[in-house]
């Protein structure tokens, strides 16, 4: 079973990202679940969301305390949240940052998701780009399924733009980390 923990701030779409990732896994024929953990319902407040993906039925319902991957949507969280808490020894972090030399004590994949979001969407909402980046670096879900899940979540032009943001991030990760 692969367990992923998302870190973001209220209003950045971390919960939606977890949902899109799980739905992509669903379209890939896997078992999956996604669920949020809010502190307060407030824009800007730290938020966590979780996704589990497996080839067999998932029976656990508790939070993810020892994830295989951590996805960090906002690097400013590093100042206030221990985003790598419980991360498995061979786990990895996918983080939205312009810095390439980030040392979090774990394998770290960086991407300027904010730049991609501003380019493609015109707003700094990075959740779909981060799911695309995760797909690119891990191969756990296909980019086709990610795009399909995004188009389910956002309709019309907005859906197309978000699918594009995911694809750009996916390709960038493939280029960067091969």
């Amino acid at each position: 079973m692969i367990e992923i923990r998302f870190h973001g701030r209220g209003g950045q779409g971390a919960v939606t990202a977890a949902q899109i990732l799980a739905k992509a896994a669903f379209y890939d024929g896997k078992f999956c679940q996604a669920f949020p953990f809010f502190g307060v319902e407030r824009r800007g407040a730290p938020v966590m969301a979780f996704t589990r993906i497996d080839d067999k039925k998932i029976t656990l319902r508790c939070q993810i305390y020892e994830p295989d991957y951590v996805i960090v949507q906002d690097a400013t969280l590093l100042e206030s949240v221990n985003v790598v808490e419980g991360l498995k020894k061979d786990g990895a972090v996918v983080i939205n940052t312009v810095k390439d030399d980030l040392d979090l004590g774990y394998k770290t994949y960086t991407i300027d998701a904010t730049g991609i979001a501003l380019d493609v969407l015109g707003v700094p909402i990075v959740n779909t780009a981060m799911v695309g980046a995760f797909a690119g670096v891990t191969g756990i879900v296909s980019i086709e399924s990610v795009k399909k899940a995004i188009l389910d979540t956002f309709k019309g032009k907005l859906g197309e733009k978000n699918a594009k943001a995911a694809e750009v991030a996916y390709n960038e990760m493939l280029k960067k980390y091969g």
Binding site: K23, F26, F31, C32, Q33, F35, P36, I58
Partner: peptide, 9 residues
């Protein structure tokens, strides 16, 4: 809240 907000098949 857990089952209310959980997403599954």
């Amino acid at each position: 809240e857990i089952v209310g907000h959980m997403r599954e098949k």
